[in-house]
Amino acid sequence: MSNIPMEAGLLLAGILFMLGMVSVMIRRNIIFMLISVEIMLNAAGLAFIVAGSHWAQPDGQIMFIFILTMAAAEVSVGLALILQIYHQLKTLDSDAANFMKG
C-alpha cells in the first residue's frame, strides 16, 4: 500500500524513544517520569508496527496489542504507587523516595 521506507519509520520510533528516555532521566516529578515511560512504550509499539507493515505480517500489530495491554496495566499500578508515595511523602519528588540507598 505505502512505499514509505522502513528506515523512516524506525527513525521516527527511535527519536520518540530517545525523547522519552531523556525525559525519564531529567525529570524529578514522578508523574512526568510515568508519562515518559508511556512515550517510550508507544515508540516501541511504533517500531513493531513499522516492521510488521514492512513484512506484511500481522505479528507486529499483535505485539503492539500486547504492549498496549502491558502499558494499561503498568499505568494503573504505577498511578496507584504514585498515590501511595504522595500520601506517604507529601511530594511527587522521586528523589525523596531514596530510603534504599546503599
Partner: peptide, 11 residues
C-alpha cells in the same frame, strides 16, 4: 496517523 499511513488502521 502514522499507523494509519502504514496500513495498520485498527491499531
Amino acid at each position: 496517523v502514522v499507523f494509519f499511513t502504514l496500513g495498520a488502521t485498527f491499531m
